[in-house]
Write a protein that binds this DNA or RNA. Structure first.
Length: 463
RNA sequence: GUCCCCAUAGACUAAGGGUUAGGUCACCACCCUUUCAAGGUGGUCGUAGGGGUUCGAAUCCCCUUGGGGACGCCA
């Protein structure tokens, strides 16, 4: 049975990049009819927070990424300690008494010499008597893993193929801290082995950890899983995707009015292809077509324009009733409590104009008084006395007709013709009077929704 | 700096020795049209550079350049 895991650390909200990693794991699991484990990697007591863990759960649920099992590393300490002890007994590790200060010092020296830093193995080489002396003094220590000093470690990556590392490049990693809490590289290996994870799908920023982990697998006699390192997502300037670069927590996308399926489809497209000619698929089809061999090697840039396009596309696929439900909280948030039947009518007109759900607030003139008018528009349509006169004449005559789209259009067209004007010469000022804007859905539809009373009032107010 | 990874238009990608280098977003033009959007039609833009291998290279190899990642008692 295929088993994959998504292993975020709760040191921040679920980031869009993390969501992509989670998604690829989810897609692979579903495609293989396997299971997805969600493992909270909270061994860093300082930075891990419950609220972040909750955010991760909520974000994944919102995206529709369901998991089969959940674990917390903080609840598995005894297991890691047990394995760490085994490693000590089998002679794979040693106690290192170097202090943080000493190590910082060494790092600085290496940096000055422009030499690559690597733990020099001081304590690995310590004579037995020094060791027991330090032990008797009760000095704090960390436990380091004895990396092989020669040879190579080979990673056969499902996405990238064979990657070779010289073991001389690997230093003796710390597997257990001064306080006895095991570290990331050790816990991951123990967990992945014990949880029988068959495929490790994670970001390529983990490639350099992999040879170290492979050595730990070997030392503990665990069977190696398959590895697949997926490319990272970059910001538009090719820098790492960060808050500054505009992409952040999944929950922020929710707040900005993106649909989960749009994000899922978009994320699925970054670094992977599903067809030579199509890009929009329902989730079931994405799952069907997902294959690690179709995952790209090069990093992908996060393009908001395309996300917006997809979001608009998916909004258009929904019914008006569905959109009304989705859009309502955003109106509420803008201080508008919409009447249900009015909202439905507005959604009908705005539906194909929405890229994000938040865009609905552009149409707030349906719900509230118009208090501001586009200044360029005022300049253009309400400065010339002749134009104002025409507008007033129109205003007077339209009061007599039925406020239905068809009638309104027929009347306006014939009015324009009778007065030797083009339709636009009436439409634009009227739109400005009714909406305050130069842009809106079809004017006659807007008028019908607004209703006669409101329209006449607004037409009378502007000049 | 050292190690590792990567390189098809502005962006995401297809083609894995023989294609007029395909699709999507964006962009431009036209159509529709009361504006905007949506939709329709057409178009501009690409194999980073240099060497090899080969009858033939986007595709295989090498170098250069560029980008990214890692180098924590973080994960």
């Amino acid at each position: 049975m295929v088993t994959v895991r998504f292993a975020p650390s709760p040191t921040g909200n679920l980031h869009i990049g993390g969501a992509r990693t989670a998604l690829f794991n989810y897609l692979f699991a579903k495609n293989q009819k396997g299971k997805l484990i969600l493992r909270i990697e909270d061994t860093d007591k300082e930075r891990s927070k419950k609220e972040y863990e909750e955010n991760i759960f909520a974000s994944m649920k919102w995206l529709g990424l369901e998991w089969d099992e959940v674990y917390r590393q903080s609840e598995r300490m005894e297991i890691y300690k047990e394995y760490a002890k085994k490693m000590e007994t089998s002679g794979h590790t040693y106690r290192c008494y170097c202090t943080k200060e000493e190590l910082d010092q060494k790092r600085k020296i290496y940096e000055k010499l422009k030499k690559p830093y690597k733990y020099d193995g001081t304590c690995r080489k310590l004579p037995a008597e020094d060791l027991s002396k330090k032990e008797n003094e009760g000095r704090p220590y960390v436990v380091r893993f004895k990396m092989p000093l020669t040879g190579q470690t080979i990673l056969n990556d499902l996405v990238r193929g064979k990657i070779t590392f010289e073991n001389t490049e690997l230093d003796d990693i710390i597997i257990s801290r001064t306080d006895g809490i095991p570290t990331y590289n050790f816990c991951v290996v123990v967990d992945d082995a014990l949880m029988q994870v068959t495929h490790i799908i994670r970001g390529e920023d983990h490639i350099s950890n992999t040879p170290r982990q492979i050595q730990l697998y070997t030392a503990m006699g665990f069977k190696l899983p398959e590895f697949a390192h997926i490319p990272l997502i970059l910001a538009s300037d090719k820098s790492r995707l960060s808050k500054r670069a505009g992409a952040a927590a999944v929950t922020e996308y929710k707040e900005e009015g993106y649909l989960p399926i749009a994000i899922v489809n978009f994320l699925a497209l970054l670094g992977c292809s599903y067809s030579a000619t199509e890009e929009i698929f329902p989730l079931s089809e994405i799952i069907n077509r997902f294959a690690l061999k179709n995952v790209n090697k090069s990093p992908a840039i996060f393009d908001f324009t395309k996300l917006d396009y997809l979001n608009g596309y998916y909004i258009r696929q929904k019914t008006e009733a569905e959109i009304a439900v989705l859009v309502r909280p955003f109106l509420l948030n803008a201080g508008i409590t919409p009447d249900e039947s009015l909202l439905l009518k507005v959604v009908k007109l705005e539906k194909e104009r929405l890229k994000k759900l938040t865009d609905i607030t552009d149409a707030k003139y349906f719900f509230t008084e118009v208090t501001e008018y586009d200044t360029a528009g005022m300049e253009k349509h309400f400065k010339d006395p002749l134009k104002i006169e025409l507008f007033k004449k129109f205003r007077g005559e339209i009061a007599g007709i039925d406020f239905k789209t068809v009638e309104l259009e027929a009347f306006t067209r014939s009015f324009a013709e009778k007065n030797g004007k083009k339709l636009g010469e009436l439409v634009h000022p009227v739109r400005l009077a009714l909406t305050g804007k130069l842009i809106s859905p079809g004017l006659f539809e807007v008028m019908e929704v607004l209703g006669k009373d409101v329209c006449l009032k607004r037409l009378g107010k502007i000049v």
